[in-house]
Amino acid sequence: MKKYLLSLAALTLIAIPQVFAVPLIKGDVAAYRVRELSTGMDWYTSLPQALQEGARTGKLVVWIHMLGKIDGAT
């Protein structure tokens, strides 16, 4: 019984930090995703031009306000 409780306590100590840890996306994966995003579609930096393209294609415009650049530091 004592052995069982000790094993349980050890398992808890190992498992709890993993359960509550923030899932981290590693830098190389994040860099790949940023590259896919910034090169996989056109990104307008002029709102009038984006709206003009929306009118031409009949699509809505997703216009993002962000700190930084889509392919740079954010």
Binding site: D42, T45, K59, L60, V61, V62, I64, M66, G68, K69
Partner: peptide
């Protein structure tokens, strides 16, 4: 969608 962004 047409996509665009601005640095705020």
């Amino acid at each position: 969608f047409v996509t665009g962004y601005q640095d705020i």
